[in-house]
Computed example of a mutant assay.
Amino acid sequence: MIFRQLFEPETSTYSYLLGCERSRRAVLIDPVASEVDGYIQLLQALNLKLIYTLETHVHADHITGAGLLRNTLGSKSIVHRDAGAMCADLLVTDGVLLQVGELEFAVLHTPGHTAGCVSYAMADRVFTGDALLIGGSGRTDFQQGDAGQLYDSITGKLFILPPDTLVYPGHDYQGNTVSTIKQEMVKNARLGGGKSRDEFIATMQDLKLAYPKFIDQALPANQSCGLAAE
């Protein structure tokens, strides 16, 4: 497997390129519009054909590159059916299996940060978007957020994965790149160490976070796959 973890510094967003060495087919998880030229150069350098862009949710902090990549490379955009992005080529639900060459991804519906959040699980790793972060979690105070639902998603869908499963989040603001399910179950400040659902909800209610800087531009753009609405 070919694997690259890519970082967009303005919004501290991680995107992920995964390619099948045999078929040379690839996917990009959570591509950022401003980075599209770099993705295309990387795909060319690695001799990979982009088949899918996989969105973990409709983002409020950056504009997706899915539409630009579809127009340029012919890739297909994938989001959850509840994400609010009917522009996508494939609307998935919980339990769907996506096959790209020898790569297989299981779609796990992990709502709570937004209604349409998903994580993409492979045999040894999971891409958790803004649901489970390293040492934390996504916020739940806008965009159909629900703290109790997020707790249920993380504990019921992610914390049941094998303990040594690698956790690759959608963001990190401290320079962390990867964790494990075991580490998050033990050390996660918001819900590790056996914290209860009520404790998590209380923690999230007390955060008092600032209004998302780019939400007014990002949400409508991402509901059109990153392209201006026709």
Rank of each mutant, 00 (worst) to 15 (best):
M185C: 03
R81Y: 15
S15D: 13
Q41Y: 03
V100N: 01
C20K: 07
A33D: 09
L43G: 07
G138D: 09
G84T: 13
T203L: 09
C20I: 05
A60T: 09
V107T: 05
A218L: 10
D30R: 10
N71L: 12
D164A: 13
L191F: 14
A88N: 13
D82T: 14
K187H: 11
K195N: 03
N47Q: 00
I2M: 00
N71R: 13
I2W: 11
G193K: 02
S179Y: 04
V100D: 03
L219M: 08
L133G: 02
G135H: 14
D82S: 15
V32G: 00
A210V: 07
G192W: 05
V186A: 10
I154C: 02
T64E: 04
I40K: 02
L133Y: 13
T128E: 11
K182V: 04
R197E: 06
V118H: 10
D130I: 08
I181Y: 09
E21R: 12
A88Q: 15
Q144L: 12
G175N: 14
K76M: 15
F127L: 04
Y173R: 07
L209M: 10
S23K: 00
T155S: 14
T110R: 12
S75W: 02
K76F: 06
G192F: 07
A147Y: 09
R190P: 01
F3C: 05
D82A: 14
G19W: 01
L97D: 12
L150S: 02
L132F: 15
A45Y: 00
H57S: 00
L108T: 00
G193P: 04
Q183V: 04
T64W: 11
S196G: 08
Q5V: 06
G192R: 03
S34V: 08
A221M: 14
A131L: 15
A202T: 03
V126I: 14
G175I: 12
F214C: 10
D141V: 06
Q99V: 12
D61T: 06
Q144K: 12
D124V: 01
G67P: 06
H57Q: 00
H62R: 12
T140N: 11
V27R: 09
G129Q: 15
